[in-house]
């Protein structure tokens, strides 16, 4: 069937609602943020409409570069870990019975209902010296005495992976369910063991899905600001933590906006780069 190009205004009406939503929930807030990022900060009061670049200038220091670098590194690491865990997991899940799949998905959805705060506190208890998991290891004779596993980078990473994993699985699930199971079988009849076939047929066949999922988890992890505070030391605080400090505790909206704009631009640039590299590889 051939689709005809829209001719009259009425042909565009199906686009009106999504377009409106995009404007209301994205264009307007984001434009406001960009505008505020150029406003003048008044330390005794709030801000006054203006056009100054001080807010961006303040950001361009090695200190913020370090924090930004850490935030990006953390988000990339969370994305890579999540996809490495979720992809094989989801694949195996799609091989289970419908009932088992439903149970797992309902379980994962219920994890999504946990707020970042609850996840943070649960993990801080789990990693604590007094009530944490190491007490179990001691009871099992694996360790001599319980230790605190937080605040550490590992604790931050574990918490964030835990938080992002259900999203990752739910994003990967439809693609893996739709994946033609005979692709793997074909590889097996051609002499590939199931594990080999998984890596050189299933994984590359879903390359675009994997890249899209990586980007989604990356962006998701970039916005995390509670878990780094609860599970990490100050040097594990992300840029989002500092943005929150500025916006909520210092009432410095212009600077917070400038940092947020910067973060968005850097993330967009990274996402764009990923897609560009992906396209070039595909073309080969």
């Amino acid at each position: 069937m051939r689709r005809e190009a829209p001719k009259s205004f009425a042909d565009y009406t199906p686009l009106l609602f999504p377009g409106l939503m995009l404007v209301v929930f994205f264009v307007v807030p984001f434009s406001t943020m960009i505008a505020v990022s150029f406003f003048k900060r008044n330390p005794a009061g709030f801000y006054t409409p203006d056009f100054v670049i001080d807010n961006y200038a303040r950001f361009l220091t090695t200190f913020f570069a370090g924090v930004l670098g850490f935030s990006l590194m953390l988000a990339v690491l969370v994305a890579v870990c999540c996809v490495s865990i979720a992809f094989p997991f989801t694949y195996l899940l799609t091989k289970r019975s419908r009932r088992a799949q439903t149970l797992w998905l309902v379980g994962l959805l219920s994890v999504l209902s946990l707020s970042e705060v609850i996840i943070g506190f649960a993990w801080s208890t789990l990693f604590s010296q007094t009530a944490g998991i190491t007490n179990l290891f001691v009871a099992l004779g694996l360790m001599d005495k319980p230790v605190a596993l937080l605040p550490t980078f590992g604790a931050v990473l574990a918490g964030m992976i835990y938080q992002a994993l259900p999203y990752t699985i739910l994003v990967l699930y439809p693609a893996l369910v739709r994946l033609d199971p005979t692709l793997l079988e074909a590889a097996r009849t051609l002499g590939a063991s199931p594990v080999k076939a998984f890596f050189n047929v299933v994984t590359p066949a879903l390359r675009n899905t994997i890249v899209a999922t990586l980007i989604m988890v990356f962006v998701f992890a970039l916005g995390s600001y509670l878990l780094p505070q609860i599970l990490g030391r100050p040097r594990h605080w992300t840029l989002s933590v500092l943005i929150t400090d500025q916006a909520i505790y210092q009432s410095n909206m212009p600077f917070a906006a400038a940092m947020a704009v910067f973060l968005v631009l850097i993330s967009l640039a990274l996402v764009g780069l990923t897609l560009l590299v992906g396209r070039r590889e595909n073309a080969l």
Partner: peptide, 21 residues
């Protein structure tokens, strides 16, 4: 014997050509 050790060739109804190759 598992499939990959049986020395056979198979054509599937869906053909199952590898889309990325």
């Amino acid at each position: 014997l598992p499939t990959h050790k049986r020395n056979l060739g198979m054509v599937f109804q869906s053909l199952a050509l590898f889309p990325h190759l």
